[in-house]
Structure formats: structure tokens, C-alpha cells
Design a protein around this nucleic acid. Sequence first.
DNA 1: CGAACCCTTGATACGCTTCAACAAGAGTGG
DNA 2: CCACTCTTGTTGAAGCGTATCAAGGGTTCG
Lengths: 247, 247
Amino acid sequence: MDSSLIKPTLASVAAPRGTVPYAPAPLAREDWQLLLGGAALSPLELASLNAMQSLRVLPAGTCVFRRGEPAEELLAVLSGHVGLGLVRDDQPGFHLERTVPGPAWLDLGSPWLGEGHAQDARTLGPARILALPLPALRELLMRQPAMGERLLAGLARTVRSLELMAHDLMHKDAEKRLAAWLLQRGRGQAQLQLGERKRDIAAQLGITPETLSRMMRQLKLKGLIAVAGYQVQLLDPAGLQALAGDA
Amino acid sequence: MDSSLIKPTLASVAAPRGTVPYAPAPLAREDWQLLLGGAALSPLELASLNAMQSLRVLPAGTCVFRRGEPAEELLAVLSGHVGLGLVRDDQPGFHLERTVPGPAWLDLGSPWLGEGHAQDARTLGPARILALPLPALRELLMRQPAMGERLLAGLARTVRSLELMAHDLMHKDAEKRLAAWLLQRGRGQAQLQLGERKRDIAAQLGITPETLSRMMRQLKLKGLIAVAGYQVQLLDPAGLQALAGDA
DNA sequence: CGAACCCTTGATACGCTTCAACAAGAGTGG
DNA sequence: CCACTCTTGTTGAAGCGTATCAAGGGTTCG
């Protein structure tokens, strides 16, 4: 069985609304800690969070929320990948701009603005989505002000990541961005399995699928990576780092 | 006296550290409200904020903070413009990436991460900088949890703005970005005075000064704007909007 | 006055997109 | 089982958009 044959699931099928009712099972402590970071969560905090939490189990290609829709919950991806982008009325398909790999917050900001979501979100593969209703969370914030700081840190991390993306789009060419993306996705692992379609990767990098294909070949020719289908091996992480750097 | 002759102040001079001691004068209620948004601030909140606040009055081209420097205060620009970018060791000058026009938060996120600032910041013109020390703010947050929500909303707005910037960099060409920038900067006013050097505007748009010059000429030729030095008139806002749009 | 900026304009080069064609699965229905 | 279609990734040729390089003019300041 060749692992390179494992292909990402489709994302361009019709996107029905996720209607699976929430599963009432409480989350593990580690799940919460990964999302909220900071100091260890107290049993009281854990209990409050588990009391308000609701979980949605969504198949691939499901719509999580639509642009303009009022944001009344804080959403997080527990497992799987969720894509943020736009459905354009004049063109078919889904224009992906950014993917959120679980576990991570999906939209931590919109609920506080009261303006609704700014983008569409849909699952790129099977995913588990965590939702915290805003009213309950507000109440928790009043009782446990330390929770506010965890949320602030989470949003600050989003800001960091977006600043980095803007920086890269302005100052790095496609090859540098791909190298940086591979390193970030690899997280130290030399072997990595692409969990999404290559065109979705290209969309995240702000390039066309054709260019991504060419850049992959470039890196392969330079001996920095080895590619076999959806399996990529980082042969020379230091070389990739040098190529991706701001130099 | 021709107003188009008003030129932006230099920003490429040596950047000394801001050393002006804080002025103890309390801020007006409107200043706080503009920054923190949301419901009207209570007298108690105002008093607490004014008690911890410190103000720096900085001349043009002053360094506000450096990359990597620990972030122990929440910073806001009360008046003037502050540029965020990078000083590169190998190249001279300051590589601007984003400007923050006062009144607005300058760096609302870094203090919560405990990792220091991610970019350098320096004033593009004379500016007044507000600082709220983190320990005092933490204490206020514990006593007044509603303040946390105001900060969350502020960070969420930053996220929105960065998402928009990334979107534009990926999907809009230079002309579209310039049109969008002019509309945003105009804020409904047809007449607008460029407060910064054109090369700084170009840097924000992710293009070179040469391209900015050409795009300005393009818009002028199309009859959408009229340009006289640093004075720009939006002749056809609807046309600009159509050109800048995602269509 | 020269020197140091700044903005502009033109010529050229390069990166990336676009368009078109093709091969390789995956799903479907005969 | 096959033919058929749909989607994906790949490759090549042509063209657009923007950067780069070079030169010139305007303004400010010493």
C-alpha cells in the first residue's frame, strides 16, 4: 500500500449546511488547553467550558458559516482542516484564502464585533467543530476575568500569523513562500503528507496551481525536497530555511 | 498659499529612541471612547484608565519600539501616523509595511503573547503615543471584566483589517489596491491631503514608488481623480469603488 | 552654488498568470 | 468488464503586470 496514493478528499462538491446536532460529550482537558493556552485551566473553568460547549461533527465540504451571517459563537477546529475564503456569485466554486488546521481557533474575532462573519468557511475534510455561544461565554468572562486574557492571546496569535502572511505576500516570491510553507507544515518532521488538494495549497500561497507545480519541480531539481504524489520529503531543511528567509 | 505644497515630513532620518517623559494630563473622554469603542465608558473606568496611562509626545522619525523588544505596554496612536515595518541589517533605511493613523491602537496584541514585538515601529510625523502598562491593565481587567471585551473587539478589528490586506494582495492588482486605498483614506471626503510620502504609500500597497506614480497617472487619465502634488481629489468615487471592487 | 532628497518617466527584464493540451485516477452506468 | 465523464495535476507557449535600472527635474537645505 503506497501512502503517496492517499488523496485529499474533495472540497468542491455542493456544500450543505452542517446539521448534525451537538454531541454532549465533554472535551478532554488537553483539547481546551491547546486552544486556550496560558496557565493550567482550573477545574472550575473546565467545568464551565464543558457546560456551554457544543460539538459538531461535519463531513468533508460542509459549510461551517457564511459571509455576513451573524457570529454568535466562538468557533474552533478540533480536528481536520477548515478553509476560509469566499463564494463568488459570478464565478463557480470556492475561492480559498486561508486554511485553519485543527486544533486551533477558527473565528475568534467576529463575535466581538457584532458585524457577522467576513468570510465563508467550509470543511476541507471531515472535521470536528467546537462552538461556544457568546452569551454564556460573556457570563463566564464576568466571573472569570482571567479567561479574557487567554482569548486575547489567541487573537494576538491570529494577528501575528496574518501579519506574517501579508509580509510574505509583499516581499517573497512564490518559491520562497512555498519553502516557508513546507517548513511550517513540516513542523520538524522530514516526511509530510499533504492533507489537502494541491490547488488549495496554491490558493493559500496566493499562486495558481500551475505555478505551484512548477515551484515544486524547482525545489525537487535543487535537491531540497523529494515528491511522490501527496507525499513530500524535506531533504534539506536548512537549505529550505535559507531559501525561505528574508535575506 | 497652495495647500498642495504641504509636504510630509521626513522619516528616513536617524531614529533616536523616544525619551520625552510622559505628560500627566488626563485624556478626554472622547479619546478613550474612540479607542475602546462599545458602550459608554463609566466614570470609574475612565478614572482607572487615566490613572495608569502615560503619554509620549514624539517628533517625526522617532523609534517607538524595536522588533524583539519585550512588549510590556499596550500602545495606541492618539494623533499622527506611526509606521510598522522592519529595519534590515543588510540594507539601509526602514522597510515600511503598514501604517497606523491615529487615533487607533498601535500594538494591542504583542503584550499578551509575552514574545516581544514582531516589527519595528517609528513615527512618520509628529505623534502622540499613549501607553497602558500591562500589570495595571491586568488588574483593571480583573476588577472590570467588561474592559476585556472592548480589547477583544479592538483586536478583532485588527484581524479584519489584516485579512482584508492579505485578500487584496492576493487578488487585486496595483490599480485596484490604490483605488481601494484612496477610498478608505478619503472616508467620504472628496478632497484629501496625503499625509505621508508617496513612497510610504507605495510600501503600504506592496508596490514600488515607480508603479504608484504610474497608477496615479492611470487614474488621472481615466478621470477618476485629480492630482496636484500631495493633494488628491476623488472626482468619481463610484467609479473608484467599481474599479476597486472584487468583481 | 552644490548636495541630498523626492517624484516622475522611459526601457528593459523577470515572475507569474492565462490559455490550451494531455495523462492519470475515480466514479458512473451500460 | 468497458466506455464515458469529471476532476486533478502537469507541462508548454504566450502575454500581462510589476520590478528594476537609469536618467531627468523639482525642491529644500547647507
